[in-house]
Nucleic acid binder design. Structure first.
Lengths: 207, 207
DNA sequence: TCATATTATGAATGATTATTCATAATATGA
DNA sequence: TCATATTATGAATAATCATTCATAATATGA
């Protein structure tokens, strides 16, 4: 899951094993953090879930916070990347938003522990770890909305900044609430967001 | 602020002072919890903000969690009460929703530290303190939406349960994001929520 | 196989902080 | 005013972890 190197062949058995351990720690940590949140998760819990010792974790990571940061970085980059890949040339801004929305939902569906993590990160950014750098926008819906408005594809009635913000808020609460209801409920989320946030503001194809 | 007794006249000077201390602790706690969140707030911080000793707090409250719970209870009850009071007989379900929404926003505007608190409580309900009882619905938008749909006032296109959930999510993220921009921004929130969640689904007055 | 190097372990350390409680300060009222 | 009762204080206690590190276990390769 966290294997994103492509030169595995070059590595010795020991090196490969070490790499695998690192990935197992991240995997375990994502589950425990995802279930209990940052504060209530102890290194002991991560070690137990990964079936290795606490000390071992420290040969791979500087500490608890470093693991957490790496997980956030991982999910943000993954969603960002998948969204970029899903967009094909010639798509209108509004089509792009729909595709990105669907892609992001699918990614979270396959990484449910990250839902809480990502949500929690929102809090953490404002104070728990002090001020931290602004992360790269996962989908940047707000710029796309702006484009859609400029092209006349979308109603300019609502400030796109706030429109995007509301989508994020609504999307999160939906994910948190129904992610446990199975795979297909993620399709429902996409559908709901579309019905509320896009369709009503979409202008009939002009000309 | 937390003074909700009406028999103050019966109390001796000492009793009144004690009551005032209790309220000052709650006031201080709401500010500190609101700024730093539950985990990062220490009893020391609350004591300093309230300008009294740590030990004193324990003559009023069982502990940190008890204070926190009382604050949540306070804001939930307050919003609930004000929303009930704002509704006048004869209002349609949709009008009721609008009034409650505006009332809730005004209440949070006057109690900004509680925004974070209430938001955080959402997390806490699922695990930080273990499973806890379900709290009384502040506004119960979902039932009102159901009524509005039944009366033909509102489109039944979207499941009212999810519709209400999305409103809550969007409302929170807006409050968290723009509450620092001053008093009038709360009006903006109400307006935004109305434009996205109500207007587009409102049926033209039939007959 | 054995000496040496590498790695893994989890108990010890140190820091934090909720809670308690012995002591100090204050109030009461005779 | 003084003896006694009440209240306030913040240092001591206890519990919880993140992190480190001395020791044990394992791997290496001669």
């Amino acid at each position: 899951m966290f294997d994103n190197e492509d030169d595995s062949k070059q590595l010795s058995r020991r090196e490969r094993e070490r790499k695998r351990h690192r990935e197992e720690i991240l995997e375990a940590a994502s589950e425990v953090f995802g279930q209990y949140g940052f504060e209530k998760t102890s290194m002991q819990m991560i070690a137990e879930k990964a079936e290795l010792s606490v000390g071992k974790i420290y040969t791979h990571f500087k500490g608890k916070e470093a693991i957490y940061r790496e997980l956030i970085e991982y999910i943000v980059t993954l969603v960002h990347q998948r969204c970029e890949d899903a967009v094909k040339p010639g798509m209108s801004p509004l089509e792009t938003i729909r595709v990105k929305m669907r892609t992001a939902m699918c990614t979270f569906r396959d990484h449910t522990p990250f839902i809480r993590l990502y949500h929690e990160d929102f809090d953490i950014r404002k104070g728990r770890f002090g001020d931290v750098e602004c992360k790269k926008p996962m989908m940047d819906i707000s710029s796309l909305l702006k484009e859609a408005i400029e092209s006349g594809e979308f109603s300019g009635e609502i400030d796109p900044e706030f429109h995007a913000l509301m989508m994020e808020g609504a999307g999160h609460i939906l994910m948190e609430s129904i992610s446990r209801s199975g795979t297909d409920s993620f399709d429902k989320i996409t559908e709901l967001l579309d019905k509320v946030f896009l369709k009503p503001f979409e202008n009939k194809k002009q000309q």
